[in-house]
Amino acid sequence: MIDILGYTCIVIGIAFWFWGTWPLIGDRSVLFKLHSLSVADTLGSMSIILGLLLKLPSEWPLLILALISLAIWNTVLGYVLAYCSSSGGDRER
């Protein structure tokens, strides 16, 4: 039962990954891509790690650490990238 739940979480995470990564290919602006990437990618990765946690609870300290660092770092990174790319782009134009 828990195994099935874990697999479902992982599959949902991979679906989120594809959903978030697909807009990268298009010809949109950096900020649009960053938005889809940071939201869907982080949620997908967290869902995958949650699924792994359900599958193998013995590695919980590692996986919880991964979950926390993912949640914090990816949001900070989204802000930093948006700040750098927008101020750099203004100078170029």
């Binding site: 990564t21 990268l24 950096v30 891509k33 990437l37 990238l81 750099g88 782009g89």
Partner: peptide
């Protein structure tokens, strides 16, 4: 910057 996005991903 698009390359940087791809790198982060």
């Amino acid at each position: 910057w698009q390359k940087m996005l791809a790198f982060s991903s």
